[in-house]
Design a protein around this nucleic acid. Structure first.
Lengths: 227, 227
DNA sequence: ACAAAAGTGTTGCGTCTACACCCATGG
DNA sequence: CCATGGGTGTAGACGCAACACTTTTGT
């Protein structure tokens, strides 16, 4: 089957930068597909089909190539340099996504040709994918400061220390414990649970969950959080 | 001449939302091309050529369709709903741009099938272009608060009152004159000129210009401005 | 008992907001 | 001399940053 057009058309792909957080690090999900030049690692992604939306394409490729599904994703930027793929003209719409690594999908990812890399220990990627990762990192860093997207990186129930560690890893600076807690609680977006951590070798911390309900209510208006 | 591919490819276009500011209003640049359904007004834009970058395509279409050239533009978002164009699958990479209407290009634009519309008095546009305009407006409103892009909407030399009016039009709320001036001057991004307004029927205001040099220096680090 | 992390308030400083009048100029 | 906008300072409220010790729990 072939398809013919009057003018040449650039190929259109999607690529997804998935950030994952575990106890140690902020990590990135990469794949080693067969088609990339020099068998380099690259971002999960592929061609957009004629009858699917961009986001649907991003989710489909993510599942196909890594087994990761049902995560938060959001459009990032569209990269269109003429020579970004040396074989032919390809424009790619990039997305970034966030997952919690302890609750999610690690096994599925590793059974295929996919793996998590610590964000400051990454290989050189195919095409302009390193550049895409940089833009994604900058976006995450900027956005986390005024929108509570970071919760996507944590398990449903988390401690205030975990929350703080997450911000510190993303922003790459340390935060004052007392001030952080005051501010975090002051947002009204945390629900205190009647539970504490289990199996820790010291005083167990109280668990919280993110209050998505009131977040959505506030989201209709202005800003929040700020770390 | 025809071009054949193994799989069907979506068409790839660019569209540009150009904001212009004059004494009265924040305005939007629209075109009435021959190809749109029902001859509706639409955003300037068109197909991306195989050998030009996305931004180059946006600038080219803008000049071709409206005569507006050499303005600030920045990528906005990529719209890819499957049915956004009823004739065939088209994905569009949108840009937004800013111009000052008193120094720029009005005549060129009006000689072609292009015109400026006040932003709160706009017709129904072709395709999903009204949605694109909304996203652009939201972006402008958000961005102007922490990055001094607004200067692109003013003439090179401007008064503090003009600057304030601009913010008020974009943010759609009034600002306190004294506080605004203090804050604007405190950014260090305004250079006080030895000139005042001409031909006004009252005390003439001092003129300022934007200090792009120090802006670029500061830009390497953090945030500024905030209104 | 000790190690490890949880949890908790206050003070000083700087920033934001609210607010009203006199001045310069042109007509 | 009048109309029009230009230009200026202060006081109170609020938010932010800095800072150290006690409590709980498991080993």
């Amino acid at each position: 089957m072939s398809h013919t057009y009057h003018y040449p058309r650039p190929g259109l792909t999607v690529d997804v930068v998935v950030f994952g957080l575990d106890e140690d690090d902020l990590k990135l999900l990469l794949v080693r597909g067969g088609e990339t030049p020099q068998r380099r690692w690259s971002l999960p992604g592929g061609f957009v089909r004629i009858d699917e939306s961009l986001e649907a394409a991003a989710r489909r490729e993510l599942v196909d190539e890594t087994g990761v599904s049902d995560i938060f994703i959001e459009q990032l930027y569209t990269f269109g340099r003429v020579d970004r793929d040396s074989r032919e003209r390809v424009v790619t719409v990039s997305y970034y996504g966030l997952v919690n690594l302890s609750e999610h999908t690690v096994t599925a990812a590793e059974s295929k040709d996919a793996a998590w890399f610590a964000i400051d220990d990454m290989p050189t990627l195919a095409f302009d994918h390193n550049e895409i990762v940089e833009v994604a990192t900058a976006r995450l860093r900027g956005k986390v400061r005024y929108q509570p997207i970071g919760f996507e990186l944590l398990p449903q129930k988390f401690t205030l220390t975990q929350l703080q560690r997450m911000y510190e890893k993303i922003l790459e600076r340390s935060l004052d414990k007392r001030n952080f807690r005051k501010k975090a609680l002051a947002t009204g977006l945390l629900i205190e649970l009647d539970e504490v951590e289990q199996d820790v070798a010291h005083r167990a911390a109280r668990l919280y969950r993110f209050d998505e309900r009131t977040y959505r209510q506030l989201a209709a208006e202005g800003t929040y959080f700020e770390v």
